[in-house]
């Protein structure tokens, strides 16, 4: 019951934030990827940085249970999947989460995106064994690896001598610094209004 309540509250907040930062608006995505407006990039970098700082300082002071961390395995398919996803994202303007949010906000094209997504996930369900046999899913760089060594978990570390929480906070600070350093309009001037037709 608690889990269900948490799913509703956190999920709902996540959807509302994605809508308000413009992540589910393809115009904002295309303006970002063509360097016309980097507001969303600054938002995402700051979001990752703030989350990293809170997660790792939370671990230092005992507020965050390291058991809640979930590190995904590194393998070649992560890179190939990323390359492919980047193409599909730029083409359509939607990610899996933002496509769903966009449909909920009333975008008709996002409904077709979701249908395509269901078909694409289905195609992967049928071809997973092939990718596995081809070795594309075999772990690289230690598999479930993190930058530093995280106490209390046995994740392999890229830099074994560096404490994971300190590495995490420094990483977070770096993301925040990049978020502040990036210009809003790298191509100069730009439009005064952030998003068309809203």
């Amino acid at each position: 019951m608690t889990q269900i309540l948490l799913a509703l509250v956190i999920g709902g907040a996540f959807g509302a934030v994605l809508d308000r930062i413009g992540a589910s608006n393809p115009n904002v995505i295309w303006d970002m990827l063509t360097f016309r407006m980097l507001g969303l990039m600054k938002t995402i970098l700051l979001g990752i940085g703030v989350a990293a700082i809170l997660i790792f300082t939370g671990q230092m002071v005992g507020l965050v249970d390291v058991g809640h961390m979930s590190i995904k395995t590194a393998y070649w398919g992560v890179l190939f999947g990323g390359l492919m996803l980047g193409f599909g994202w730029a083409l359509s303007g939607f990610c899996p989460g933002t496509g769903i949010c966009a449909a909920a906000a009333g975008r008709k094209d996002a409904v077709f995106y979701i249908l395509g997504g269901l078909a694409g996930a289905g195609a992967y369900i049928l071809s997973h064994d092939w990718f596995q046999a081809a070795g594309l899913l075999d772990p690289i760089l230690g598999g479930k690896s993190t930058i530093g060594t995280i106490a209390g978990r046995d994740f392999p570390a890229l830099l074994p001598n560096v404490p994971g929480d300190i590495a995490g906070v420094l990483l977070g600070l770096a993301f925040v610094a990049i978020a502040f350093a990036l210009p809003q309009h790298p191509r100069g001037g730009g439009r005064a209004v952030a998003t068309p037709a809203e």
Binding site: G47, A52, I55, G81, M84, L85, G88, Y124
Partner: peptide, 27 residues
């Protein structure tokens, strides 16, 4: 685009939320 993105996300075992944001914020 949806077809490509979700096929890719399953191949990579995560999408923008799971890999990029959750993943990078956990180092």
């Amino acid at each position: 685009g949806g077809f490509i993105v979700l096929f890719a996300a399953r191949l990579a075992d995560g999408c923008t939320s799971g890999h990029m944001m959750s993943g990078m914020s956990q180092a």
